[in-house]
Amino acid sequence: MSAPRNTFLPRFAIAALVGAALVALADANLNPYLLSIIQFIGLNIILAVSLNVTNGFIGLFSLGHPAFMTVGGYVAAILVIPPERKAALLPDLPAFLAAQEWSFLPALIAGGSVAALVALIVGFPVLRLRGHYLAVATLGLIFIVQSFAVNLRGVTRGALGLSGLPELTNLWWVYLFCLVTIYVCWQLKHSSLGRTMLAIRENELAASCLGVKVARMRILSFVLGAFLAGIAGGLWVHLVTLISPSSFSFILAFEIVVMVVLGGTGSITGAVLVAVVLSVLTQLLRPVEEAANLFGASQMIVAFVVLVVLITRPKGLFGTAEPDLVGWLLRPFRKSKAA
């Protein structure tokens, strides 16, 4: 059962403070390799929760997140590069961009905004499609964006990509945007706007007959998901310090969809938990794959888990429900106090 909406804010504040304490401990005691793994887990949480807005809340089947990550990543990277380096690397940049050097946060917001603008432009024709037709169309968007990145050599350096970027992403930035993503998506889901989206997912014709602007709501969810994916792309790029047209492939799109489907289409809690579990499982299996020369074993295990879950629980682990994890964790303390 999900917590009542009027108790969400204090519970969220408690969880955020506990998370901040854990982040501080990790930042002070863990080595850079482990910190980078935790940051990738956080990025997967942002991607899974943001895709849930599109695929879970309103029932679209979009595979376009890597395209929006590419857009957001390139925009953020170009904006933070110093002007003297841009002149050498990117000779075809417009003059107003070539002279700019933005700080990290505005660059991330700009990257997300441009990704949202691309989603808005693409959304009008693409979101007229349904089901697997929409999936194929959004999958094609990945290849279109990659083709632009390859051919605009004077703006993106083409297939060479942008390397040697400043390592601006850290655990605190990832944690901050995880909190923002979860908070915004939770509040959206439990608002009248979110209930409208869920109604469209359950019965689009009935919602339309009741006066719901279905096309407008579909575009809104698509744009919001793209904005958050663009920010995740900017964080990702400044964590690995490079970006190329192939940085975010269609394989990543399926991995994010798996997180949403396993957790439950519409469940924010489920998306977070599955993103953490799958990210950790992938990291644990990687040394085994390399030692046994069984590359791709983790993907086979994940595929098997997906099949089992879909057979036993077609709506995912939680469906659209939000289990009260904070209450569950605090239950032992309540029992001891009552005793």
Rank of each mutant, 00 (worst) to 15 (best):
I78L: 07
L79Y: 11
L79A: 15
V80A: 03
V80P: 05
I81Y: 01
I81T: 13
I81D: 13
P83G: 05
P83T: 11
E84N: 06
R85L: 15
R85G: 03
A87H: 04
A88L: 12
L90K: 13
D92F: 04
D92G: 14
D92K: 12
D92E: 11
D92T: 13
D92Q: 13
L93K: 12
L93Y: 05
A95F: 08
F96P: 00
F96Y: 01
L97H: 02
A98D: 12
Q100H: 01
E101C: 02
E101A: 05
W102E: 02
S103F: 08
S103N: 08
P106C: 13
L108K: 00
G111N: 03
G111V: 02
G112T: 11
G112E: 09
G112D: 09
G112W: 05
A115H: 04
V118A: 02
V118I: 14
V118Q: 05
V118E: 09
V118T: 06
L120V: 04
L120T: 10
L120G: 11
L120C: 13
F124M: 06
P125K: 00
L127W: 01
L127G: 01
R128H: 07
R130D: 11
R130T: 14
H132F: 10
H132C: 01
H132M: 09
Y133D: 14
A135W: 02
A135C: 01
V136F: 06
A137F: 06
G140R: 03
L141H: 08
L141A: 07
I144Q: 04
I144H: 07
I144D: 02
V145P: 10
Q146Y: 04
Q146I: 10
S147R: 09
S147N: 14
F148K: 07
F148Q: 12
N151E: 13
L152A: 14
L152R: 06
L152W: 11
R153W: 00
R153T: 10
R153D: 05
T156E: 04
T156Y: 00
T156R: 01
G158R: 13
G158I: 11
A159H: 04
A159P: 00
L160M: 11
L160T: 04
G161Y: 08
G161D: 10
L162A: 10
S163T: 15
S163W: 11
